[in-house]
């Protein structure tokens, strides 16, 4: 007699799973590390970060996952995403299937054109980084600002502090600005 367990289980335990995805060089790993540090700072939440390694991380789709819970995190890898950030079309196509029903999809509309759903938050992160923050390199930080505004999972001040701690010297202003514009623009989108 086969016992059905999987059908009965509600997976929404106290657990929030974020995937930052794009292509190698877009700073997805940096973003995930910063996010971890900002969220874990207070000690109230547990966070675990993991990333794709090896040939997979060279060009092509690159991903970094962050799992957040106020309880002990058992399984450290993402099971069903609560939030997916897709900075490229390839990443979106590859990882959209891992997003939970009613999960939050955030896309960089400067690079992603074909959406699998109407239910998403879109901002041109790369364009915003280049034109408003001063450098395309900080597109990931613009996106972090947006995630912060959309989820409230992390305090903006903590996120800024964590970004500045790890950002190369001399890029502080650029990073601060990137985070602010991402945050402010996303707030306007928030439903």
């Amino acid at each position: 007699m086969a016992v059905r367990i999987l059908d009965k289980i509600k997976t929404s335990q106290d657990r929030f799973e974020i995937r930052l995805s794009g292509s190698g060089g877009q700073g997805m790993i940096f973003g995930s590390v910063v996010l971890c540090e900002a969220i874990g700072k207070e000690g109230a939440k547990n966070v675990v970060q993991s990333q794709s390694y090896g040939p997979e991380a060279r060009g092509g789709a690159s991903k970094a996952d962050v799992v957040i819970s106020s309880e002990e995190i058992y399984y450290p890898k993402a099971m069903k995403l609560d939030l997916l950030l897709a900075m490229t079309q390839e990443a979106l196509d590859k990882y959209y299937k891992d997003l939970k029903e009613n999960g939050i999809l955030v896309v960089d509309t400067s690079l992603v054109t074909e959406m699998p759903t109407k239910d998403y938050y879109g901002l041109p992160f790369t364009q915003m980084a280049r034109e408003e923050a001063g450098h395309v390199m900080v597109a990931n930080v613009v996106a972090l600002g947006a995630i912060c505004a959309l989820t409230g999972i992390v305090k903006k001040e903590d996120l800024i502090e964590a970004v500045l701690l790890r950002a190369p010297r001399g890029t502080e202003d650029r990073n601060r600005k990137a985070l602010e514009i991402g945050y402010n623009e996303a707030l306007k989108l928030k439903k």
């Binding site: 971890c36 874990g40 970060q49 993991s50 990333q51 890898k77």
Partner: peptide, 10 residues
Amino acid sequence: DEVIAHMRAI
């Protein structure tokens, strides 16, 4: 193992 070695956590 590789999973633990490369994972990050606070």
